[in-house]
Computed example of a mutant assay.
Amino acid sequence: MRNLLIILLCFQVGITFSQEEDRAEIIAEADRYVANGNEVLQKDGNFPKAEGEYRKAISKNPIDAVAKYNLANAYYNTEKYDEANNRYVEAAKTATTKKEKHKAFHNQGNTFMEQKKYKEAVEAYKNALRNNPKDDETRYNLALAKKMLEKQQNEDKGGDGDKDKDQNKDDNKDKENKDKKDGENKEDKKEGGDEKDQKGDEGEDKKDEKGKDEEDKQDDPNEDGKEKKKDNKEGEGKPEEKKQQPQQVQGQLSPQQVKSLLEAMNNEERKVQDKINAKKAKGAKTKTEKDW
Score class of each variant (00 low, 15 high):
residue 133 P to G: 12
residue 13 V to R: 10
residue 171 D to Q: 15
residue 128 A to F: 04
residue 50 A to F: 01
residue 18 S to Q: 13
residue 162 D to T: 11
residue 27 I to P: 01
residue 160 D to L: 14
residue 260 S to M: 08
residue 103 K to H: 09
residue 211 G to W: 13
residue 17 F to G: 15
residue 183 G to W: 12
residue 279 K to T: 01
residue 288 T to Y: 12
residue 210 K to C: 14
residue 107 N to K: 04
residue 208 D to H: 09
residue 189 K to C: 04
residue 75 Y to W: 08
residue 159 G to S: 11
residue 186 K to C: 06
residue 233 K to H: 03
residue 168 N to T: 13
residue 2 R to F: 14
residue 65 A to S: 14
residue 219 D to E: 13
residue 291 D to P: 01
residue 183 G to V: 05
residue 59 S to Q: 14
residue 290 K to T: 01
residue 120 E to Q: 11
residue 14 G to R: 11
residue 58 I to L: 08
residue 97 T to V: 04
residue 270 R to P: 00
residue 180 K to I: 06
residue 248 Q to W: 08
residue 281 A to T: 01
residue 135 D to Q: 03
residue 256 Q to C: 02
residue 269 E to G: 10
residue 213 D to F: 08
residue 12 Q to L: 15
residue 73 N to W: 08
residue 211 G to A: 15
residue 175 K to E: 08
residue 283 G to P: 09
residue 108 Q to N: 05
residue 61 N to R: 05
residue 268 E to F: 13
residue 207 K to F: 11
residue 219 D to H: 08
residue 191 E to Y: 12
residue 97 T to W: 00
residue 27 I to V: 12
residue 249 V to T: 13
residue 62 P to N: 03
residue 46 N to V: 04
residue 88 Y to H: 04
residue 93 K to M: 07
residue 287 K to R: 10
residue 1 M to L: 10
residue 92 A to E: 03
residue 49 K to I: 12
residue 188 D to A: 12
residue 269 E to L: 12
residue 30 A to W: 00
residue 170 D to K: 15
residue 68 K to M: 10
residue 135 D to R: 00
residue 244 Q to K: 14
residue 55 R to W: 11
residue 78 T to G: 07
residue 132 N to S: 06
residue 149 L to R: 02
residue 76 Y to M: 09
residue 136 D to H: 12
residue 132 N to A: 07
residue 125 Y to T: 03
residue 283 G to C: 12
residue 176 E to F: 02
residue 176 E to P: 04
residue 171 D to V: 15
residue 23 R to G: 06
residue 177 N to W: 07
residue 207 K to V: 09
residue 207 K to W: 12
residue 270 R to L: 07
residue 25 E to R: 14
residue 196 K to H: 08
residue 139 R to D: 11
residue 79 E to Q: 13
residue 172 N to Q: 06
residue 8 L to M: 10
residue 34 V to E: 02
residue 217 K to M: 08
residue 31 D to M: 04
residue 278 A to I: 00
residue 188 D to N: 06
residue 267 N to C: 00
residue 212 K to C: 02
residue 238 K to F: 00
residue 40 V to M: 07
residue 21 E to G: 15
residue 202 E to S: 09
residue 94 T to L: 05
residue 271 K to C: 04
residue 20 E to A: 15
residue 209 E to H: 15
residue 148 M to H: 07
residue 207 K to T: 14
residue 37 G to T: 01
residue 196 K to L: 12
residue 88 Y to K: 02
residue 167 Q to P: 00
residue 45 G to E: 05
residue 208 D to Q: 11
residue 5 L to M: 07
residue 71 L to T: 03
residue 133 P to E: 14
residue 200 G to V: 11
residue 84 A to S: 10
residue 149 L to S: 00
residue 258 V to P: 02
residue 64 D to H: 09
residue 127 N to C: 01
residue 27 I to Q: 08
residue 210 K to W: 13
residue 145 A to Y: 01
residue 53 E to L: 08
residue 75 Y to K: 07
residue 282 K to A: 10
residue 64 D to K: 10
residue 280 K to S: 01
residue 61 N to Q: 09
residue 137 E to P: 04
residue 150 E to V: 07
residue 174 D to E: 14
residue 168 N to A: 15
residue 285 K to R: 05
residue 39 E to A: 11
residue 51 E to F: 09
residue 118 Y to F: 09
residue 151 K to Q: 13
residue 100 E to I: 02
